[in-house]
Amino acid sequence: MLVEMLRTGMNSANEGFFAEGYVHKQVIDWIKEMLGFPETTGGVLVSGGSEANFTGLAVARNAKAEVDTKAKGVQALSRKMTIYCSDETHHCLERSVEILGLGNEALRWIPTDDDCRIRIDALKRAIEDDKKQNKHPFCIIGCAGTVNSGAFDELNALADLAKKENMWFHVDGAFGAWVKISKTHRHLADGMERADSIAIDLHKWMNMPYGIGCTLVKDRFAHYSTFVYGHEAKYLKSAFDQLKDQIINPHNLALPLSRDFTSLKAYMLLRAYGKNKYSNLVQQNIDQTNYLGELIRKEPNMEITAPVVSNIVCFRYKPKRLTEPELEKLNKMIYNDLNQISFWMVSDTMIKGKYMLRACNVNHRSQKQDFDFLVNEVKNIGEKIISQINL
């Protein structure tokens, strides 16, 4: 609240120079260090995961296009550019592809395995099929924590394939990238640091006020040249070494020109609590999630419906002798009743055609008794519904 009062009182529309510029740079440097990215990586703070993904994919499109898309646009392409992600990828990626002029038909949804990770074999076949049809595969998107189940793609395998095919490797880490600072699960993010670009959120697992996200891009020239004014782009290569102040200026690295000193929120919290505090909070959420998973496994009328990987448990109430349509109807009723008790205590989702409840733990105030309460409520509501209606 103090930061919001200070930002509003200053009413600054500039984040590139003076104190504001130094604060933004420091926040980007801290994020790079926490996530294991090289010091030479560039970055910019944005409004959230959707804009962070859009920013990374805009750079990818321009960097890999076979024409100067800044000057000529995608209509000058002789080959259709194609981009690849898993069928568990967040829908904001589809929106980005559409806005970038590639069209949603350019986005290849690759099936996932039983662990909700992109199937590398299917990805390879899709790329080869598109090459045979004279299309231009240019970008692979990996998930560092899917929204539905918290699954992590095999990021090293995706990085290897992108390198082999000369494709851009982008990671959507908006949800789960911060597992990197955990004590027990950081291995899930192995290979994330090999991405050409990554989108992350700070207002989810980092418990910062909405809205604040970040895009990191390794190729600073490609990043800067994507968003700098077109008439300036022709001078970039010859003058790039003299543009050190400009290539870290966030006004040149994302769509908005007016900025509201968003970096102050992240600066104050990171400065106050530091990496160790946030690491402990992330680990606490993971431990609590595993506790919830164990509670559900002990219940004869409940089942885990997706692997418990990081900080999400997908589950459903499953008494014996009910068909799949009946189970879906029952769990939808349980979900509605839960929301009457505590709105958004859980959400719901569909994975591989199966309806389920979804408990996502990113709250620094969560306690073990909260999960005991959840399991007991699901049981009680389920039993009550079964006794009252004919399923």
Rank of each mutant, 00 (worst) to 15 (best):
M1F: 11
L2T: 14
V3G: 05
A13K: 12
A13G: 01
G16T: 07
G16A: 11
F17I: 12
F18Y: 13
V23H: 13
V23S: 10
Q26S: 13
V27S: 06
I28Y: 09
K32I: 01
P38T: 06
E39N: 14
T40E: 15
T41F: 11
V44P: 07
V44T: 09
V44D: 04
V46Y: 08
G48Y: 04
N53Y: 03
F54H: 08
G56R: 06
V59C: 09
A63M: 04
A63N: 09
E66S: 14
V67R: 00
T69R: 03
T69K: 01
A71G: 00
K72R: 05
G73N: 06
A76N: 03
D87T: 11
E88G: 08
H91E: 13
L93C: 08
L93R: 02
I99F: 01
L100D: 03
W109L: 12
R119F: 01
L123M: 11
E128W: 11
K132Q: 15
Q133S: 14
N134L: 12
P137S: 10
I141W: 04
I141C: 15
A144Q: 11
S149I: 07
K164G: 04
M167G: 09
W168M: 05
D172N: 15
W178K: 11
M192Y: 08
M192P: 05
R194S: 15
S197T: 12
A199N: 06
D201S: 15
N207I: 15
P209E: 15
Y210D: 12
L216D: 03
V217N: 02
A222C: 06
S225V: 03
S225K: 07
T226I: 02
F227H: 02
Y235N: 12
L236Y: 06
K237C: 02
S238V: 00
D241N: 13
N249Q: 07
A254M: 09
D260R: 00
D260E: 08
L264K: 00
Y267I: 05
R271P: 07
A272N: 05
G274I: 09
K275Q: 10
S279C: 12
Q284R: 07
E294S: 15
I296L: 03
R297C: 10
K298A: 13
P300D: 08
M302Y: 08
P307L: 11
V309A: 02
N311G: 00
N311V: 07
K318G: 01
P319W: 00
K320T: 02
R321N: 14
L322C: 08
E324I: 10
I334L: 05
Y335V: 07
N336I: 11
N336T: 09
N336C: 08
M345H: 07
I351W: 06
G353N: 02
R358L: 14
N361H: 08
R365Q: 13
D372S: 10
N376M: 12
V378N: 09
G382D: 08
S387C: 05
